[in-house]
Amino acid sequence: MRKSLRINHHPLLGEMDKKVISFTYNGEKLQGLEGEPIAVALLANHIRILRRHEESGSARGLYCGIGHCMECRVELLGKGQVRACLTPLKEGMEIREGSRLPNAITGRVDS
């Protein structure tokens, strides 16, 4: 079991007052705090790989954290592709790695 990345007892900012809830990522059952962005809940579980690049297949994760760079796209059941840095976590969410978008130039459609 790796050491948690959660900061308990921040010297200046106090404690987080949020409910612990369950969700799944790629089928694995995990826990996170209600309302925190999906990317944060995954990071707290040491998960950084959020999708694979469309062409190279190289791993991608959170970059800007403000919804601008679109690098953190994940697949949320019932919603489709969402930005993991801006989407609040809810109980029972089923999340998977972001699917690869089709490429109009090469004609690739599948992921």
Binding site: M16, P37, L43, C64, G65
Partner: peptide, 25 residues
């Protein structure tokens, strides 16, 4: 820079100070 674990410094700030999760050890 595209490797997961590389982020803008503002994202590291948001992780640590807003959500209180370390961007890494």
């Amino acid at each position: 820079w595209t490797l997961p674990g590389v982020m803008s410094i503002g994202a590291a700030q948001v992780m640590a100070n807003v959500h209180q999760v370390k961007p890494g050890e």
